[in-house]
Amino acid sequence: MKVTGLEKERVCDFVAYCKKHRKELDDSYLYDSDLEEFEVTLENPTYVLINEQEEIIGAASFVLDDYHKRGKRARFRIFHSEMENIQFYQEMLQALLTHTTDLEKIFIFIPVTNKKLIEMIEGLKFSVERFSFLLVREDLEVPHVHLPDGYELRAFRPGEDEENWRQVRNAAFATLKGSETPITIEGVAELLTHQDYLEGGMMLLFHQGNPVGVIRGADDEYEDAPIMNIGPVAILPAYQGSGLGRILLRAALEFAKESGYRRTILSVNGENERAKALYIQEGFKQVEAVACYHYFV
């Protein structure tokens, strides 16, 4: 057995390995669209575990894009071995740690049902940072959206609303675990070019002409069927607790229905109990729970 850097000639084998095992893992960066575009670059440091037959039987890869680097952290795309031996995980981890100069920590999301991977991760001295829950809403009726006086809800206007979106999102998530790193105007603009982008799915809420809330609906897939992913749902701190989050959520649900989606999906941090309670009140049900483990480098 040996751990080696992924070579360009074996990217197809790596992609096949990811597809084979992604249902056991957090698949946030293992969708077909992500894997189709995967390349061996500085943003995607990747190592594989090879057996005597030169087959890939393990893989470890970071997502190290501009957003994560600005937050001084790296997220695992995949960390998995078909051989349940902590030594192999240790060797892959050590290889990846050579790419963590100037970083403070690395982190990974693991479904709480994957006890074997959790055992390996904890054996490597990772610790739980937080929990996150995945919620799904079936094809239910959507309550009417009623805006209070002085408020306006409209679709994102490319070339005009990037700064409005950035300000609201960053202020709303400044203390939210995992989302503290502010996004840039360029990062907002990139949302318009993602394969999951839906025309009209990005909306802003204004109060007397000032932006106070944002929400995004994006194309996604869950259990091999189309679904609309909702997020972020962000309200300026000064406006939180006044029912505006419910208004934004219902607007997104209405957009999903108009766009032909029968189901919607979103995720929420475990400590954000108020948001989770809102989603459940609006018809969402918890379908998965994942633990975020981090490791300080």
Rank of each mutant, 00 (worst) to 15 (best):
G5E: 13
L153N: 11
A155M: 09
A277C: 08
M92P: 09
R130E: 06
K19A: 01
E273H: 12
D34E: 13
M203V: 10
V3L: 05
L244G: 00
G71F: 09
M1F: 13
A238L: 01
T264E: 01
L278G: 08
N170E: 04
S267G: 14
A256W: 03
E104H: 15
E221A: 09
Q90W: 10
A277S: 14
H146V: 14
L249G: 02
E163H: 12
Y67N: 02
I247P: 09
E24N: 08
K23W: 05
E160T: 09
P232I: 00
D149F: 10
L30D: 06
F156Q: 00
E39R: 15
Y31S: 14
Q286P: 04
D26T: 01
R216A: 15
L205V: 04
M228N: 04
F284M: 06
E254I: 00
P232C: 00
R169Q: 13
K69H: 04
G270C: 01
Q90N: 13
V136G: 02
K285H: 12
K285S: 13
L249A: 02
G187S: 06
G270Y: 05
I265L: 15
F109P: 04
A291P: 11
G260Y: 07
V145T: 09
V297E: 03
S132V: 14
N269M: 11
I121E: 03
R70Y: 10
I86A: 01
N164H: 15
F255S: 01
K276Q: 13
R77H: 10
E288N: 14
E163Y: 11
V168T: 02
V168A: 02
G150K: 04
K20M: 02
V168L: 04
E271Q: 13
R169F: 15
E36D: 14
Y47N: 01
L147P: 10
L117V: 14
V142W: 08
